[in-house]
Design a binder for these strands. Sequence first.
RNA 1: GCGGGUAUAGCUUAGUGGUAAAGCCCUAGCCUUCCAAGCUAGUUAUGUGGGUUCGAUUCCCACUACCCGCUCCA
Length: 527
Amino acid sequence: MSDASPEKNTALMEKIVSLCKRRGFIFQSAEIYGGLNGCWDYGPLGAELKRNLKEYWWRKNVQEREDILGLDGSILTHQAVLKASGHVGGFSDPMCDCLLSNARLRADQIVPQSGTVYWFTGASHAESGWSVERDYGVLAMAGDDESKVRKTARQYYAQFLADKQISPKTLELTGERTEAMTETTRFNPENGSLLTEARAFNLMFQTRMGASSDESDESSIAYLRPETAQSIFVQFKNVLDSSRVKLPFGIAQIGKSFRNEINPRNFTFRSREFEQMEIEFFCRPEDGLRLTDEWLERRLTFYEEIGIPREHLHVLDIPDGERAFYSAKTYDIEYEFPFGIQELEGVAYRTDYDLGVHQKGSGKSMEYFDEETKEKILPHVVEPSAGCDRTVLALICEAFEEETVTDEKGKEEIRTVLRFSPRIAPIKVGIFPLLKNKPELVEKAREIQKILSPFMTVFYDEAAAIGRRYRRQDEVGTPYCVTVDFDTIGENGEELKDTVTLRERDSMKQERIPIAKLREFLLDRIQ
RNA sequence: GCGGGUAUAGCUUAGUGGUAAAGCCCUAGCCUUCCAAGCUAGUUAUGUGGGUUCGAUUCCCACUACCCGCUCCA
């Protein structure tokens, strides 16, 4: 996808989805039962790919740093945590629908209006005897005349007509009365039509804990966490007290989060169950903005290291007024997916908002005592929060390529190849005996499999012609293949004995390498 | 959530109100000395549930899922 265009590319995305299923990267959840909306399962290769991503992230951010510590919090979350964080009250959108156009509107974003409301109780059609009783209203703003209002009402009632041949114009409106209203948000500013009652659509999955939990017992309510961040904030004190760390330091977590998205879309990109890779990096207030910029750079480097080049990433500096209310600075790192430029990760400076609300909510101090300055401070926090599933999808999209190759006879064909970085490729090396009906070759290949498999994911394959086996591995992104031939078993002299052909995925070049050096050679390239 | 579209084998596509076809893939065997070779054999499908009908994969209805647009994404 080196020539990725920002325009939508549905055909490309369909090919990628098809490959993911065919080769066992990603399946639809509960497919044999018709599928579960917005849920996906990772197949054998997808599981390897995702694991490689998570392990590399953990290695770079936890293992190789002494100032970041790991955490693995529970998914089931105490309701008090999410009340304090603002999710119970605020993690919802009041939505209402226009009764006329069915447009969906955010109730809290409707500009209040004033005018005269015309109420009706129903409509009838004298000729056919049809009638409907249903309350409806239209807001007439200054300048609207009555005929326009009645036309809107007739269009509304016409929706209930069984006979679509009847013109809305011939309907009689019943029960008309008027009412003056000021600053109302119950009507669609576009057309004056009455809206449905606002319904809160909370994006959190709620559950009840305990065997005896009954519907009326509010205290049994728990939630599936909508982000991994909260368990980090809630355990901030415990980590601090148990680990003897000093500011600045971070707590990292990889784990599942759940949001009841209204509209899951774009394959695994927006799912209801998803995995996050988050760091909360705590610091002194004066360092927050600087560290936000530093983290942005560090994260961009990370994406380059796993094979997503900087030129396919976009950094969005979210302007004042568009950031979440708690954030003093936010960068979005976006990737050019075939379906558009979409967010992979947010790097947000959350100030002391989170520790502040939990200090208030729990009544427990979240303060940090600085031994040098002898002062107590409430640390600020910088949060690089990456979507794991989104990054896996980006890795697959970035790696996908259909290459035209010409064989010796001049015949052109399409080679589908996933150009994964060796570091994250699900299978590191394919091991083939040149021929499967020669026991010496098979035996030697099995030996090599045994040597390498403790160190990396290997795939042994003896079926079909050697070229086909190479292509199979190309399609799943295996960077190297090793072939055992007659040289290996010493048929062509001592100097070639115990050497194998090493074939590289991208160049399709082959070189001769001693079996004894294979492990080191491969490990050098996949670390 | 609204509107539009789609649903036949692992994939890509035929087709039919009366036994569902092909190519690729896959599996096994033979053969085969490095880039999807050949021969033989084989497995596998009408998304789910109703209705109409003697009979439905085909017609009708509902549901589900996916795709596109809108909406939404603290």
